[in-house]
Design a protein around this nucleic acid. Structure first.
Length: 285
DNA sequence: ATGGGGGCCTGCCGGC
DNA sequence: TGCCGGCAGGCCCCCA
């Protein structure tokens, strides 16, 4: 799926057509994605004004003027595309729905926002804004890695005496919210930490370095508009381009790009997911 | 308690 | 050309 940088890029793309704007009609083209949509969601959203468009982890949250919040999650293959926003936009690629277009937001400002998701691991939900913090999808999330919520001291404490491999710990949204398979591999490479290292043996200085590298790789990816491998697109249909900056992800057998390192990138499967790393400059902890 | 595996879906790519 | 296995930016659930 889109990880944090891709979701943030999508949010920024939606801002000008959604925030402060009225949804004239929400059209649902199936009964649900991962789960059934809430009863009456289309009616409750149609006519509502979006007060604020925010992001939490990999979720986009639209607070509506009816005391409700609309939640988007892109799953693995979800896309959001905007048509007809600008007066000179003659593309209108979505004048007729395409395959896997599941939800269509027609805005008062003329924009059409389409949620497309081939694999249907994505989510659309609606709940009372005041209950958002208790919402089951959001309540267990850990700190945001960007901003001021993530502290190395907290991670050092959280990791003490635990044996879980750092790769799987960083994918755990309860520990840090928003990382996914790409940026975990990239951050571990930057921090020179082997993905199988038990979190309990990491030194405090390694964890401090890791926090800095997580922040840096996410910020750089956002600046590049995210990474496009298969499904991900920005809301204008454009590709992100951070994939060109990957050091290790999907680069098995390539030479390690670290200056002075002569190692070769290796693919490893952990908990059913691919990890990529350089055995030479990411020694076992 | 927590770490790993299976399942959810569709699409694409490579090998035979 | 077609079929089949493997793989994919995620997350929930169940089991040891």
């Amino acid at each position: 799926m889109p990880e944090l940088p891709e979701v943030e890029t999508i949010r920024r793309g939606l801002l000008p057509v959604m925030e402060g704007q009225v949804i004239s009609t929400l059209t649902l083209r199936r009964a649900g994605l991962r789960w059934p949509f809430p009863e009456g969601m289309a009616e409750q959203v149609s006519g509502a004004k979006v007060l604020l468009l925010r992001r939490r982890a990999k979720y986009i949250l639209a607070d509506l003027d009816r005391g409700t919040t609309l939640l988007f999650h892109m799953g693995m293959s979800g896309r959001i595309l905007i048509d007809g926003a600008a007066p000179d936009d003659r593309q209108h690629t979505r004048t007729t729905p395409q395959k896997h277009d599941h939800a269509i937001f027609d805005m008062d400002n003329g924009a059409r926002i389409t949620f497309n998701d081939a694999r249907r691991f994505g989510m659309l939900d609606l709940f009372a804004t005041e209950s958002a913090a208790q919402q089951s999808l959001l309540s267990t999330l850990g700190p945001e890695p960007l901003g001021n919520d993530l502290h190395a001291d907290w991670l050092i404490e959280r990791f003490a005496n635990r044996r879980s491999p750092i790769k799987t710990a960083l994918l755990d949204q309860r520990i840090i919210a928003g990382l996914g398979n790409i940026y975990v591999s990239e951050a571990l490479w930057r921090a020179k930490i082997h993905p199988e290292t038990a979190i309990g043996v990491l030194r405090p200085d390694q964890i401090e370095t890791l926090v800095r590298d997580i922040r840096a790789v996410l910020a750089e990816a956002i600046a590049a508009g995210g990474s496009s491998l298969r499904d991900y697109r920005q809301t204008d249909g454009e590709l992100g381009y951070f994939q060109h900056a990957f050091a290790v992800y999907d680069r098995a057998t390539s030479p390690c790009p670290r200056h002075g390192c002569t190692g070769q990138i290796v693919r490893l499967v952990q908990a059913g997911r691919s990890s990529y790393f350089c055995p030479t400059c990411q020694p076992r902890g």
